[in-house]
């Protein structure tokens, strides 16, 4: 719901919101596209931010491919539903055997896909009917969604310090750099820290 509403609130059409959910199908990346464009960023910054967030799905694919062992069209479908949730549930079934892993992946991936798309449509249509988005709190729904997405990743002190530093850095750079760039720049902070640590 929140994504469809956020997309429309940031100027995307209902069709574009639904296409993002069908084709991109990765919550954080989708919110990033509408967030960056909504903040006045260029389409290139929006695509870059969303794609940097999407790189983790490639690594999930690497982990899932030998476990699923599928080819052709089935691999295309498997790739499309390779997200945080499906990979997480699948790996949570490891001790129960390979069939449980496969089942966990497919049920979660397809289940989330169906509901995510239905709710996107509902949210987009709802937001379209609203008018002033601030009156419905939609301007706060997007940052709250980002916060909800990052929260489970803040597992230790190091992660929390990185999160706060990147937040402060992005705010400090916002008046100086073109919209979108302060966000992308934090990915490079993460890469540099990851290389050194």
């Amino acid at each position: 719901m929140a994504f469809g509403a956020a997309a429309v609130a940031n100027g995307f059409s209902v069709l574009q919101a639904c296409l993002l959910s069908l084709l991109t199908f990765s919550g954080a990346s989708q919110f990033a596209v509408v967030g960056v464009i909504g903040a006045g960023g260029s389409s290139i910054s929006a695509i870059a931010t969303a794609s940097l967030l999407g790189t983790r799905n490639a690594l999930y694919g690497v982990i899932m491919a030998p476990r699923l062992n599928v080819r052709g069209f089935k691999r295309v479908v498997a790739a499309q539903v390779t997200i945080d949730e499906s990979t997480g549930v699948a790996l949570g079934q490891e001790q129960r055997g390979i069939d449980a892993v496969k089942k966990g992946f497919w049920y979660t991936g397809i289940g989330v896909f169906v509901f995510w798309n239905l709710f996107t449509l509902a949210g987009a249509l709802g937001a379209q009917a609203m008018g002033d988005i601030r009156a419905f709190g939609l301007d706060s729904a997007v940052p709250a969604a980002f916060l909800g997405l990052v929260w489970p990743r803040l597992t230790g002190k190091f992660e929390r310090i990185l999160a706060v530093s990147c937040a402060l850095f992005a705010i400090a750079m916002t008046p100086i750099l073109p919209a979108g760039l302060p966000i992308i720049a934090t990915a490079f902070i993460a890469i540099v820290i990851g290389m050194k640590r």
């Binding site: 954080a28 967030l53 990052v150 990743r153 990185l162 706060v164």
Partner: peptide
């Protein structure tokens, strides 16, 4: 690569929380 992969979403999502909460266009 695994480590960087875990850090990138933390950095980007935190930046997005901040920018989406405390700015409008390029103004804080």
């Amino acid at each position: 690569i695994q480590r960087i992969n875990a850090l990138i979403p933390i950095a980007l999502l935190s930046a997005l929380v901040a920018v989406q909460s405390f700015s409008e266009k390029s103004q804080l």
